[in-house]
């Protein structure tokens, strides 16, 4: 997988997260933004990577999960709950996507899964999420995405 396009995907996920949850009570509008983002991630994955590679199959889902993680930092209410849930979603995509790929001869990235798992568990202890902590969390997710 091309590291440049992989890093660009992370940047795109960060940028697109700014469009999520802008209409706090509007289910349809919020959903349309999520689906629009997801469609964009699908198109990006199709254009940037080789579709014959099994690793690309769940790439848009991974981007969506990362986008959810970034978006939770701008929430006003129940931030910790949704922060943990977004990371759990990411963990889910990585773990079960990895198991599917393992049966096709591709090794599971245990380091990435462990790093996300640690993030999930540690986030449950965050009682007050300050601006600095938001920044640290975002750096942590970007590091997981790019380095592992």
């Amino acid at each position: 997988m091309n590291p440049l396009f992989n890093s660009l995907a992370c940047l795109l996920a960060l940028a697109m997260s700014a469009f999520l949850w802008r209409y706090s009570n509007k289910l349809i509008k919020n959903s349309l933004f999520v689906i629009g983002n997801f469609l964009f991630f699908c198109l990006y994955s199709a254009l940037a990577f080789d579709l014959a590679s099994p690793m690309v199959e769940n790439y848009p889902f991974r981007m969506l999960a990362l986008c959810f993680c970034f978006s939770t930092t701008s929430l006003n209410h129940k931030r910790r709950r949704y922060l943990v849930m977004a990371q759990c979603f990411w963990l889910w995509v990585e773990l079960f996507g990895g198991i599917s790929l393992f049966y096709r001869g591709i090794d599971i990235s245990w380091t990435r899964i462990a790093a996300i798992g640690v993030g999930c568990v540690c986030s449950t202890f965050l009682s007050n999420i300050s601006k600095e902590m938001e920044f640290c969390l975002m750096v942590y997710w970007i590091a997981i995405w790019i380095m592992f």
């Binding site: 199959e57 079960f96 996507g97 599917s100 790929l101 049966y103 096709r104």
Partner: peptide
């Protein structure tokens, strides 16, 4: 998803 049947290949199947 864990099979090699081309029709079912998809690590995105769980979601």
């Amino acid at each position: 998803a864990t099979t090699f049947v081309p029709h079912w290949r998809g690590s995105f199947f769980p979601i």
